[in-house]
Design a protein around this nucleic acid. Structure first.
Lengths: 204, 204
DNA sequence: GTCTATATGTGGATAGAC
DNA sequence: GTCTATCCACATATAGAC
């Protein structure tokens, strides 16, 4: 049985803590507004150490995004098989919004063009993203087949609409008013995404 | 009849050109990534002059946003009275998306927390925003009354959902793939917003 | 009024003591 | 490995010549 030095364990634990802090800060302020000084201050350590773990701010952000994608894939895999495909999609959207309400990252790095570009150059990130994309697309296709999702909209469009709803600014705005409980808001947004704003069958 | 000096006309014209440039650049890169050097370079003038028109980058951005809000209000007022309330909302969303596709600003400054804070401290901006909010809320209420919008979602939630759809990142992503004509995309997104992704009446 | 040049502040990244 | 101190690039904003 291999002996793992204590120092090394500590180092690993800190790495995870750094990602946690980056996660919180990026969730609150976004990538551009988060500074490495912020991350260091949040943990009460020096900025230099962070660069022992991650060679750049971009790579730190990428590590946080990769971990989020992995957790999202795990969540999808853990959904009860009794759910329909559309039920799984609704549950996944609700999960993402709840995480976001708790200070987590948005799945879609739409805030920062700089981050977006950096991520797409990161093979690890792109790999996870392709996996998630495949999983979500499969669910959308299945739900289209069983007649619970519309067929007059391309699957690709629906997939991206669902992604985009996980970082819906309407959610943040409404949450910040404090006028609606978070659970109610999540229900409303999931309902508006899948059911639409209009009354079915009403004239436009 | 008052004589307006040529110099003054030129000055006014330049001010409008500066706002135009800021409009384009913020539409493409977002507020944070746009620099005053960018604006100056776009117009082929020196950076110093911009500060003769606007005391700060924030105030320039605010001027651009205020003009956009005014144009949005004008668009709402010019919609054919024959349209139903819901028809007007759909047309307004389509108008906003088309403007955005042409390089215009997103109505909702959700990209930058810094800009958001600055705007909310700008009385001119907040005034226009309240006017727009009143107009959109009135349309939503009317459409709820005539039975074309759902009554199980709060009006406030629906208003914010519509706002958010005008800066939907799904639109930009899908547009950039080049696989869908812009007109088709706009139709799809308006349809998904009001009609939802699900087939009406299907089990979740 | 318009330019060139510069002051000032900030943030990513690194060097060097311990 | 961890800190303090610093470098360097860049962006906002201003000063001064013409």
């Amino acid at each position: 049985m291999e002996h793992i030095p204590f120092k090394e364990q500590q180092f690993k634990a800190r790495e995870s803590a750094v990602i946690d802090a980056a996660n919180r800060l990026m969730g609150q302020k976004g990538y551009d507004q988060m500074t490495m000084d912020d991350v260091a201050a949040e943990l009460g350590i020096s900025k230099g150490i962070i660069y022992k773990h991650f060679p750049s701010k971009e790579s730190l952000a990428a590590a946080a995004m990769i971990r989020l994608l992995q957790e999202t894939l795990a969540m999808l895999a853990a959904l009860p098989p009794s759910l329909s495909a559309r039920g799984k999609l609704e549950a996944a959207l609700a999960w993402a919004l709840r995480r976001r309400a708790e200070g987590g990252l948005p799945l879609l790095p739409a805030n920062s063009a700089a981050l977006q570009k950096a991520l797409l150059a990161n093979l690890g990130y792109v790999g996870q993203l392709l996996q998630l994309n495949a999983a979500v697309t499969a669910l959308v296709e299945e739900a289209r087949q069983d007649g619970s999702l519309r067929r007059d909209l391309p699957a690709e469009v629906m997939v991206h609409v669902i992604y985009a709803r996980t970082c819906d600014p309407a959610f943040d705005f409404l949450k910040d008013t404090g006028r609606h409980p978070v659970d109610t808001l999540i229900e409303h947004l999931v309902a508006s995404c899948f059911g639409g704003l209009a009354v079915p069958g009403s004239p436009p």
